[in-house]
Nucleic acid binder design. Sequence first.
DNA 1: ACTTACCTTAAGTTTTCTTTAAGTTTCGCT
DNA 2: AGCGAAACTTAAAGAAAACTTAAGGTAAGT
Lengths: 219, 219
Amino acid sequence: MHLLLVEDDHLVAQGLIRSLRQEGYSVEHSGTVKHALECLSSGEIELVILDLGLPDGDGSQVLKHIKVQKKVIPVVILTARGSIDDKVQGLDMGADDYLEKPFDPAELFARLRVASRRINQTQSSLLRCGDVVMDTSAHTVELSGQSLTLPRKEYMLLKALMENQGRVQSKQQLENKLYQWGEEVGSNAIEVHIHHLRKKFPSDFIKTLRGIGYVVGKR
Amino acid sequence: MHLLLVEDDHLVAQGLIRSLRQEGYSVEHSGTVKHALECLSSGEIELVILDLGLPDGDGSQVLKHIKVQKKVIPVVILTARGSIDDKVQGLDMGADDYLEKPFDPAELFARLRVASRRINQTQSSLLRCGDVVMDTSAHTVELSGQSLTLPRKEYMLLKALMENQGRVQSKQQLENKLYQWGEEVGSNAIEVHIHHLRKKFPSDFIKTLRGIGYVVGKR
DNA sequence: ACTTACCTTAAGTTTTCTTTAAGTTTCGCT
DNA sequence: AGCGAAACTTAAAGAAAACTTAAGGTAAGT
């Protein structure tokens, strides 16, 4: 999931970026309104964390820009401004959530999960598909009750599939979810990960649709 | 907008109900888990405000009930339990927002507006024609409920036909849709694909108009 | 710094899809 | 009814996509 972090405090930003990546997000970072708008124009961003006080303007400009374009990108405001008026104003401008600094990362991550499962139209952090159960908040996977450990990329790949049960995911779509923009994969990495995943699950769990992509569940 | 307020403290409830009505909501009120579930079963409720500590159980039961039924009702938790763990747990169970008591009504209302503006946002890309249902975003095809897998070109061909139900598509038109400019097809490829498709669907599904082209549906 | 596990690459192999082409049937017209 | 054009059927060669393996590089943790 491509996330844009708009935050001018470099210390805060670096720490957040690190833990967000650990959580499985592909993170883009802006310290200014100008750069944030540029990032958004790429059209790849699916989720935004927004600080309000920026050196070249106010974060609300970014929010306004998103809403004017009728994009359906959830925005979580993360700021030191904590008055009720600030919150009401931020939310009414179209933000999906509002968190006051100082904040607890665990709460931020939980609220990000709320936003991202809304994008995927899933009901909770538990993804189930046959014998496979995945808890996206605990980062765990179980196969018929047996917990198993997946490497990061395999986990991300499986998650992308399970968030879209019954929907075919093209290799391109999957690549976009597993990799940052700059880093293109010039090879069959996805195929190899699929291969590894298949060795750990029932053979018919991940289905291939030749020329189209991969699916899990429903069918 | 029909809202269910689940809150056992009568004093809090009365005040809230009044201001919620002022905000334009039609408010239903429950003080117990049992009654809340009854209200939900009517199917009228579009939005829920949920207290966790209730006399006959925990509010999370209500949340779980909603999520199990796959209803798309946003739930805002409003409770005295304010630890990070409580918040994370509530959000991960599927709540859309979490507000700690004591709270400012203005903030609650702002967060409710966020939840309710999200309600009318569903889109599906279904093509239907008799027993055949095609979901172009999921890349799936169903014949009377049975999902079936089509090779890429057959899928593209069927899609071209179903996007033009009742309109005859000449072989030339179809070729243009299946092949990029440059790659010419020097043979009866379309006929062959039609043939393969017909083996997978009712015999009268794709009709031939000799000398003109092929149609699906309507007529 | 060392070890381990993970990720990517690339080449070879297998599978499946797509096109071709030739033979057969159907249809519409005279 | 008979003719020719169009569409159908079939099978096989060719092309494309995906699978499998293994090795080398990279990053994480000790």
